[in-house]
Design a protein around this nucleic acid. Structure first.
Lengths: 412, 412
DNA sequence: CCTATTAGTTCAGGTTCCATACAAAGGAGC
DNA sequence: GCTCCTTTGTATGGAACCTGAACTAATAGG
């Protein structure tokens, strides 16, 4: 509602963003783009021409197909700029680069024990990690980690990706994901709580990071940003990420909802039983106390997730009961969420994705029972394995670029 | 994200909407509006001129104040078009007309026992009620009900409002509020559930109503539309309306969130205790089972709300306990909501507004405990008494008009 | 009476998108 | 091989919009 005045320039930005969004669905000729977006062929050409001239977009040779003049598909150039996603984890740093075409052009992870470090040290390390990644991208020597076991997550290397060779890639901007509760604007939030990285509490990471990071920086919660890695599933969904705790994000119309103060998405602290077990948040009976990893493992008397999965395969009754209890709690919590926000898809990530086959029956049954005839259409598992957070972070930057496509033009 | 292409016309619409939104905050000169909106004085003039010529806006005589040429404030004309809000209640019909200036120019209620009627009969009665109201507005003989006891709600009459006299008022559009769970687009939703008006279940009311209703019609849930009557409190808030059941709405950036399929806002069915009392929705332990009127009254052993309030004044322990239980449940449910959507204000309406002083302590204490350091800033009571639904409905139409100000121009 | 200040209007200029017409490039049919 | 048809891409004039600067209008103060 509280929008700003717009002139012809904003109009052009909007239409170009529309066009780029259409292009993200795959290469298409000017005529096809015109049909997709509702713009005129002439307008499409005039909007795209500068980007073709800048080398951001590539024009394929005509491919005769059917009757009429052959179409000349336009696509994102192999050397087009990319967005960086960086995730600070308890024991490491993960970074990736994603192009506007959605292709992963780099993915790497290094081990860092963050638990003892100060906020300044964390910022410094992450900044250098990101700068190195950006430098390798510019030099055309970044790795994609393609071909490795996805479950095992990315690892260090120098494998040049299938399309990553050749021209250096400029960085459009960086999104930093933190395992922390953040308050305030995405460009400079305050860390309100960070149970796993207490040194960050009370700091404003963007201020320490900005200098080192390539391009404009946004900072977000790990699970909230991770939600955006699943736009291929649906444009509107609830994302629930199970890790030590349980986080999440609401994605509405292709964008993540940050809430009035940036706190939105704490699905782990939806209440399932007001008199339930006490939770670290100060409440009782939060979803996290049933479906969080620590709660789940201790209820199942399992040492880790692998053990839990083995026990489930062996039909161990304690494991079975623990997972059913987690699924039911998750289902009850999600029913509350869906009754309030009415999103048609639930995406489970992190440990919850691994257990999806065991959780789904109870989750879906609670949803069906408690949603008054409009439960979500689907409960699906994330297929991003360990990379949801960084990919979603990069996606957050790309979404910004679509609303301000001028960022694609090379800086003067 | 999935937006449409825009040309210069859309640009003008946007800026004019911005301007009208600024004007809603009170009369202002062109220069003041230019300062408020960021547009140029020239642009402001060119945008407003046609509306002044059409008689939608009025230009006051210059009022010299301070140095410089005196400003000529522009305001909505006394005869400017209005939006209609119509509410179908179990035992009556309520209608109101609200101008873009937010002034109530008509408010009336008639008693109708809807319980036995067919969907067609309900549609017919509501259509005629709205048409009569529109006709009276056009003839300048509508009533505002001003001066009556607000708690008692509006009643039939012909009192011409303070500004309602003179020119007839055109109707911009109508919003119809139903005590029903609706699915689908606001212009033609399907009634999924209507416990209090079962005849409507399975129907598409807009199709029956449209012919009779003046102007474009939107249909919405009673509580969801009622939320919009409280934009004066904040632009972002959670609205909870207590009646027989408990409904609500999320207001984000001045607009109500309908959700992907139109179901959003069912705060009454957020779960407080998964093993709690069974609820009509099929679940257990929903907020409604503690804070809904029937639950509340039976727990307090009170015949009606008046009796409950008397008992509370007398410090009756059963009444006290029932209200504390309701407040705690409401607080727990709202904590779940706020943890997910992060809205900074809670507005209580309906019966909950009447009991706000008794409920607030428990509600706020649960919120403070369970919201991880970011509880809502305020929990306030609606001051709209019986009129929130119709006023919010009218507001929904006005919001639409701001996004398409061409509707203000008189039809050719 | 003259100047400073603010409000409102006028007009040329630049940008945008669009409708139309036109050129380019290939298939289909004869 | 030729013409006709279909489709793509480009060029051009037109209409709408916002802007900036210049201009007029109206008041206060000296």
């Amino acid at each position: 509602m509280a929008t700003s005045p717009v002139g012809p320039a904003a109009l052009r930005r909007h239409n170009l963003g529309l066009l780029l969004a259409a292009l993200r669905e795959g290469p298409a000729s000017r005529a096809a783009l015109a049909a997709r977006t509702g713009l005129t062929r002439a307008t499409v050409a005039s909007l795209l021409d500068p980007l073709v001239a800048d080398g951001v977009l590539d024009e394929a040779t005509a491919a005769p197909s059917g009757v009429g003049r052959p179409a000349r598909p336009v696509s994102f150039a192999p050397g087009a700029p990319v967005a960086l996603g960086i995730s600070v984890e308890i024991d490491g740093l993960v970074g990736c680069a994603v192009g506007l075409d959605g292709r992963l052009t780099a993915l790497r992870r290094i081990a860092v024990d963050h638990t003892g470090l100060t906020a300044a040290a964390i910022a410094d390390g992450a900044g250098r990690f990101a700068a190195a990644l950006a430098a390798d991208l510019a030099a055309g020597t970044a790795d994609t980690g393609a071909g490795r076991s996805p479950g095992a997550g990315p690892s260090r290397g120098r494998v040049v990706g299938p399309r990553g060779s050749g021209a250096g890639r400029r960085v459009l901007g960086t999104a930093l994901a933190l395992p922390a509760l953040l308050s305030g604007p995405a460009t400079d939030p305050l860390v309100v709580r960070a149970p796993n990285l207490p040194a960050l509490t009370g700091t404003r990471p963007a201020q320490a990071f900005t200098a080192a990071f390539p391009g404009p920086l946004v900072v977000g919660n790990e699970a909230t940003l991770g939600a955006l890695a699943h736009l291929d599933v649906a444009p509107d969904f609830v994302y629930v990420s199970g890790d030590v705790g349980i986080g999440g994000g609401l994605v509405v119309d292709g964008g993540v909802w940050r809430g009035a103060r940036g706190f939105a998405g704490e699905i782990g602290h939806v209440v399932v039983d007001r008199e339930g077990p006490p939770c670290g948040c100060g409440g009782r009976g939060c979803v996290e106390q049933y479906a969080g990893r620590t709660a789940l493992l201790s209820a199942a008397c399992a040492a880790d997730l692998d053990a839990l999965e083995l026990a489930l395969r062996d039909d161990d009754p304690r494991a079975r009961r623990a997972v059913d209890r987690a699924g039911a709690a998750l289902g009850v919590g999600l029913a509350s969420v869906v009754n309030v926000v009415d999103l048609p898809v639930v995406v489970l990530g992190g440990t919850l994705a691994r257990l999806v086959e065991h959780l789904r029956p109870t989750v879906e049954s609670e949803l069906a029972q408690r949603c008054m005839g409009h439960p979500p259409d689907r409960v699906v598992a994330s297929r991003r394995h360990g990379t949801a957070t960084v990919r979603g972070a990069a996606e957050a930057v790309l979404t910004e670029v679509l609303t301000d496509p001028d960022r694609l033009r090379p800086p003067a």
